[in-house]
Design a protein around this nucleic acid. Sequence first.
DNA 1: AAAATATTGGAATTATTCACCAATGACAAA
DNA 2: TTTGTCATTGGTGAATAATTCCAATATTTT
Lengths: 158, 158
Amino acid sequence: MTKLDRIDRRILAELQSDATISNLELAERVGLSPSPCSRRVRQLQERGLIDRTVTLLNRDKLDLTLTIYIQVHMANQLTKTLDNFELRVSEFDEVQECALVTGSDADYLLKVVMPDMAHYEKFLLKQLNQIDGVASIRTSFVLRQVLSRTELPLKHVN
Amino acid sequence: MTKLDRIDRRILAELQSDATISNLELAERVGLSPSPCSRRVRQLQERGLIDRTVTLLNRDKLDLTLTIYIQVHMANQLTKTLDNFELRVSEFDEVQECALVTGSDADYLLKVVMPDMAHYEKFLLKQLNQIDGVASIRTSFVLRQVLSRTELPLKHVN
DNA sequence: AAAATATTGGAATTATTCACCAATGACAAA
DNA sequence: TTTGTCATTGGTGAATAATTCCAATATTTT
């Protein structure tokens, strides 16, 4: 695992903000000719720094106007209970994030998107609450999404 | 604003999971020939359903091993205070998400990434706590990232 | 300073995209 | 059912872009 130089970092920064640009354009922006530029991109993929490239869709246009953070407290911390919870939660494609966090013994933090309250109510009662080991649930509705970024900071690297 | 048909949905689903595939490949997967396929993609962009396409980097490879959720409670809910907080927070590129959420009168939920605790301590004391109007801060460290998805569910559409 | 190694840039080949147009299919009215 | 209208499709060719190869340049090591 070798270090990233200045050019690698600039390539990553560009692709993080817009992956649709051509290799020619990218090469120009980072100050390289096309061939070494595409080679570097390939190497960054092979080295695992580039995970994947995806298109991000517009939530509102897809009728997903509600974003909700949910804190789930579990009744116990048995591996079987937690594994099962994580498996079940991963099957819901409204769940954008799920993390086991510090706080109590076993707390999950979920971020979900929904069309409206009716769907959310159903999700909470019929899906989340039905999972074994769920002790309590605390919901925070997003009033205003101030910031949502996929770009990671590169300044800490190397 | 017209509806999305079966093919539009399949295009969005494919691009959400992998935006690197060629139009030829995409066309084949959705059961269309290349030209109408690329036209549909362009129209989906023009209609605003496609927001942007980005590459996602590997947090660990960038030495960003800590993910932290922070609940910030504000001392008041004056527009000036909140606007200032949101502006300042947006300037930190370690902040991946920031949302004003229900719960108390004025609570923000942040998601930040950091290399380690030393950086986090500095971030908390020197940056976040220095912002005017911040009353209290509660931190949850991510022990295990169970799920992190950028794909939005398409089943609710239309 | 010299040798070894890695990286670069240009030319040619290969692949891909985009625009144009005829043809097909869906839909509405008679 | 038939006819006309409209939108959508699929193929073709021109333009654009990506990738491979190789010689030249730069960088590192001894």
